[in-house]
């Protein structure tokens, strides 16, 4: 085999590897975002369809309808792993910022929206409702996470109720093994009593994984969806 053939083959391999790397960068920076945006829109549409169905079923007068005052509200369905159950709005991250919240924090789940830590409290319940989201890639949902400040509102809806949480502790930097941040009463948050808390987590630094950023908040108010959007989302 001549030197010429060897040099040519090696060059061609180098060019090929370079092209694949460029394509991979495009995939990570751009294509995962396109895919995630489609997936998140799809999850929200799925939720809205489901809520419309539920509302229609309730309106047709089954047992436990909204018209029966005093009756305990129907026990909400359990969160199913990998399925959306709520939509989150954070005005600080943008007036139109809204993302689906799915049950579980698996890699596959987090590609389709924010992930609710399985085993933490349900939305609006006593305990700690903990949610993780991508800071970069897959739609960059928590790109502006460090801009969150105490007093900011985080609004969630499960189709029946609007839950408005208010952030109390600004972005707190910790290590990935610090699972105490999603405890029912997170020690570092300054909360001392049991309550209805919210924890958001994402990665830190922006493109790294050595640390995590955390914010904590508490449930400020709730209102039924019939009462319209909460004040935080009105312009």
């Amino acid at each position: 085999m001549s030197v010429r053939v060897v040099v040519r083959t090696v060059s061609e391999l180098c060019v090929t590897v370079g092209t694949v790397i460029v394509l991979f960068v495009l995939y990570v920076l751009f294509w995962t975002g396109v895919k995630a945006d489609t997936a998140m829109d799809d999850q929200i549409a799925q939720l809205e369809r489901q809520w419309a169905r539920d509302a229609a079923a309730a309106g047709s007068g089954g047992p436990g309808t909204a018209e029966s005052p005093g009756a305990a509200p129907a026990k909400p369905a359990a969160y199913r792993d990998g399925k959306p159950f709520a939509v989150m709005y954070v005005p600080r991250l943008g007036f139109t910022w809204n993302k689906p919240v799915l049950e579980g924090t698996r890699t596959k789940t987090l590609k389709k929206g924010l992930g609710h830590y399985a085993g933490t409290a349900r939305l609006g319940e006593r305990g700690n409702f903990a949610v993780a989201g991508h800071r970069r890639t897959h739609g960059d949902p928590f790109k502006d996470f460090p801009r969150l400040r105490p007093g900011d509102r985080v609004v969630l809806t499960d189709g029946r109720t609007w839950f408005t949480y208010r952030i109390d502790t600004g972005p707190y930097r910790t290590v990935p093994s610090d699972t105490a941040v999603i405890d029912p009463v997170p020690e570092k948050s300054g909360y001392t009593r049991e309550g209805r808390y919210l924890t958001l987590t994402t990665c830190e630094p922006e493109w790294g994984h050595s640390h995590r950023l955390i914010v904590w908040g508490h449930l400020d108010e709730t209102q039924p969806v019939e009462a319209g959007k909460p004040e935080a989302l009105r312009r």
């Binding site: 924090t105 991508h134 910790t174 990935p176 093994s177 699972t179 994984h209 995590r212």
Partner: peptide
């Protein structure tokens, strides 16, 4: 093939996926 199979496999090996506090 790269976008559909190879990259989705390789991408979780990058650090951008570690956004939770309980994976270790």
């Amino acid at each position: 093939v790269l976008f559909q199979y190879v990259f989705p496999w390789a991408e979780p090996l990058l650090p951008f996926n570690d956004v939770t506090v309980d994976d270790q």
